[in-house]
Amino acid sequence: MNRRFHRWTVPALAATALLGSLTLAGPAAATAPLDGATTATATQEDGLRAAAPKITRAEEIRRARLWLTANGGKPVPYSQHKNWKDGYRQDCSGFASMALRLPKSGPNTVALKNDGWTKPIKMSELRQGDLVIKANSNDPNHRHVVIFDKWESGKKSYSSYEQAGHVGTRHATHSYGLKSGDGYHAYRPVNLSD
């Protein structure tokens, strides 16, 4: 009985070894192109970030102010689907991208936060030109980014530039990120030169 078991075990083990090696080789071969594609995408994103020119905070704010009157003396209207004459999307992240001279039409709010365009900082470290971002929502209508301008009321609020729904470009006072749990956090654009 041991011999019979042994006779069937050797071929079974050989077949299992062959199938195992094919199984192991299959995913490796399949993931090689995917890994290459992922690397290519990461390289493309790195290239885009490298293509974003260095900009001073003063230049960023000057550019943000342009949209306050760029529409025949009125603010640029808000749209998640249209680009303004300068090639940037007319939503909040397109506006921030325009002000920072990022590649057109601009990364969206989630990409501004997650894809290396910014780095997280504390709210107390905000300086003119930094961003306050809410990106942790599956609904694009509940994401937002504003460009910090200056502190107001003993740091209980601040003024900022933004592209807001139903309003367009505006300079307004906010307290986003100053209340625990509202989902807003401070970020510093990596292409700022000062």
Results as ranks from 00 to 15, higher is better:
Y187M: 11
S79Q: 08
G154S: 14
C92V: 02
G168M: 15
A164D: 10
G177R: 05
D91S: 03
H185D: 02
W67H: 04
S153P: 08
K74C: 11
A51G: 05
K119L: 15
Y176N: 13
R143W: 01
L24A: 11
C92M: 02
N71L: 00
W151A: 14
L126H: 15
A14D: 01
T23E: 04
R127F: 01
S153K: 15
Y158A: 04
W84Y: 09
T23R: 08
H142M: 14
A111R: 11
I55C: 10
K85A: 14
H144A: 12
K85C: 09
S157K: 09
V146F: 03
T109F: 09
A164E: 09
K179N: 05
W8F: 12
G154C: 14
S93Q: 14
K54M: 08
Y78M: 15
K134R: 11
K122G: 09
A15C: 14
R62G: 02
A99K: 10
G165T: 13
W8I: 15
G154Y: 13
P103G: 07
Y187E: 14
T31R: 00
S97E: 00
T173L: 15
W67V: 06
Y161C: 02
P53R: 00
L19N: 04
V146E: 10
A15Y: 02
V167S: 03
S153H: 13
A25P: 12
L19R: 02
H144R: 06
T38N: 09
Y158F: 11
A99W: 09
P77E: 13
A40D: 08
T16R: 07
N114S: 13
S105D: 15
F95G: 00
Y184L: 01
G129T: 04
K155W: 07
W67I: 07
A164M: 12
G154H: 11
A58M: 01
K179C: 06
V146H: 14
A164S: 10
Q90F: 02
L192C: 00
A64M: 05
H142K: 14
L66I: 06
L13F: 14
P107G: 01
H81R: 06
M123T: 10
S160H: 04
Y184N: 07
W8Y: 13
A58V: 06
T43Q: 12
A25K: 15
I147F: 03
K134G: 02
H185L: 05
E152A: 10
L19G: 06
M98Q: 05
T23C: 13
Y176H: 12
K122V: 06
G94L: 00
P11I: 04
D130H: 09
A14F: 08
G183H: 11
L192I: 05
L192F: 03
G73W: 15
P11M: 01
L18K: 06
A164N: 05
Y78Q: 07
D194H: 04
L178N: 00
W151P: 07
